[in-house]
Amino acid sequence: MSNKKLFGLYLHVPYCKAKCRYCDFYSAPGARGVPQAYVDALLRELAKNTRRPDTVYFGGGTPALLSPAQVEMLLRACDPLPGAEITLEANPDVVTQETLNGFRAAGVTRISFGVQSADDTQLRRLGRTHTAAGASAALAMAQKAGFAEICGDIMLALSYYSNAEFDATLALLKNGGCTHISAYLLKIEPGTAFAKYPPDGLPTPDEAADFYLYAVRRLEQEGYRQYEISNFARPGHEGRHNLLYWNCCDYLGLGPAAHSCLDALRSYWPGDVQGFIAGTVQPQPEGDCTAEDFLLMQLRLRTGLNLPQYAARGGQLTAAQRAFMRQCVAHGYAVWQDDTFALTPEGLVVQNAILEELI
């Protein structure tokens, strides 16, 4: 059993009460909870794992549809290391004081709520099934359950958006005890309800960029330091599991549409929940984790790309790339810090364009 390298486990729980209009994640109807047959399938696959994880992440879907007993069963099978970060995603309207107490007792250390907005009209437009008052109540219950790590999501640049809506949502999360906030721009993904019926009142790309930069400033003012393009935390409360992804460490994903990267080899499970339960589908190879992947991931982080580490993975910058990077610095899109090239918030706004030039 190897504990020499950081290792994370991701358990995908695809069940949802309802499909949000912007969501393109793999999901399945789950108003009555998570079938025990699905939990048994996860247990079957966990039994094949020989490494103890530093982090465990229950993602979805809506993992809070699991019962506390099911979470306890799965965590026992995960056998995390002492002090491991154990995260569970939740929708505010599917938790109760009893279930939150149960999740905490089962070993969950970090609860993450998809709040998105403090405006009820906006929530209905998004297809969310909770209200702002319900989100506030869920955060209060999480604090009462003893969670020291509480996370909240904010969506930016929504229909008819304003800085005032962002401020109200930030206040709701801050007052609810959030130590970590994810703030990200709405993206209309193919195959979603929003792709078929685009919402009215969406901001222009320039307006969306202004909302993003406003959010970065306000979050910093309230003590949430940006450490990744969409993630902000009080110092010491950064998400350890997602940092494994961005630092190209090892992680094993289980469940339909879950991805893994082990020893620099990527794989994924087909999006087939019934096939996963039956054991008739298996992970498919997805290619190597390359130096280019490392560059892409590291430039999501405010700490940036360390060139000696990039070189150790086989990466080599051309003269044209270095010249372009110097231009980014000159225009305020990036900074050099010793041997590290890091994007500023203004650079993160146009990250895709920068990466297209660099790759």
Results as ranks from 00 to 15, higher is better:
Gly33Asn: 06
Ala334Glu: 04
Thr129Tyr: 03
Leu305Tyr: 00
Phe324Gly: 14
Gly191Met: 14
Tyr214Trp: 03
Tyr160Cys: 08
Lys48Glu: 14
Asp40Ile: 14
Ala183Trp: 01
Glu149Asn: 15
Asn49Pro: 10
Phe103Leu: 10
Pro190Cys: 10
Leu358His: 09
Tyr26Asp: 00
Asp263Phe: 15
Phe211Pro: 01
Ala323Lys: 14
Pro235Trp: 13
Leu158Ile: 03
Val281Tyr: 03
Thr129Asn: 04
Ala77His: 02
Gln226Pro: 04
Gly177Arg: 02
His12Phe: 11
Ala208His: 02
Ala353Pro: 09
His237Gly: 10
Ala84Cys: 07
Gly30Phe: 01
Ser260Lys: 10
Pro345Lys: 05
Tyr214Cys: 06
Gly287His: 11
Gln143Val: 14
Asn231Cys: 07
Ala353Asp: 12
Ala37Asn: 13
Cys261Gly: 09
Ser112Ala: 04
Ala215Arg: 02
Thr280Tyr: 00
Ala330Gly: 13
Cys249Tyr: 14
Ile277Leu: 06
Leu158Phe: 00
Phe103Trp: 09
Tyr160Asn: 12
Pro199Lys: 01
Glu357Cys: 06
His12Met: 10
Val95Phe: 04
Thr96Gly: 11
Asn91Leu: 05
Val94Ser: 05
Ala41Asn: 01
Ala330Tyr: 08
Gly146Phe: 13
Val56Trp: 03
Arg217Ser: 09
Lys196Trp: 05
Pro63Asn: 01
Phe276Thr: 09
Ser182Glu: 00
Asn91Lys: 04
Tyr251Arg: 11
Arg125Phe: 04
Gln116Ser: 07
Gly33Pro: 03
Asp79Cys: 15
Gly177Gln: 01
Tyr26Leu: 03
Asp120Ile: 06
Glu207Leu: 11
Pro270Glu: 07
Asn91Val: 05
Glu286Thr: 09
Asn91Glu: 07
Arg234Asn: 08
Gly177Tyr: 03
Asn163Asp: 10
Asp338Leu: 02
Pro14Cys: 12
Thr121Cys: 11
Val281Ile: 14
Thr192Phe: 08
Arg240Asn: 02
Leu100Arg: 01
Ile354Asn: 07
Ile188Asn: 00
Ala77Phe: 05
Pro63Ser: 06
Leu9Asp: 06
Ala37Ser: 15
Asn352Ile: 10
Met155Gly: 01
Ala47Asn: 13
Leu317Asn: 05
Gln309Gly: 14
Ala168Asp: 09
Glu165Ala: 09
Cys151Ala: 13
Pro190Thr: 10
Leu254Ile: 13
Arg302Ala: 11
Ala257Cys: 13
Asn306Ala: 14
Gly253Asp: 08
Ala291Tyr: 08
Lys4Tyr: 07
Leu123Phe: 08
Gln122Ile: 10
Gly107Glu: 03
Ala137Pro: 01
Asp79Trp: 15
Leu301Lys: 06
Leu185Glu: 12
Leu254Lys: 08
Ser27Met: 03
Gln351Gly: 14
Cys178Asn: 06
Ile277Met: 06
Ala28Asn: 08
Thr344Asp: 11
Tyr224Ala: 15
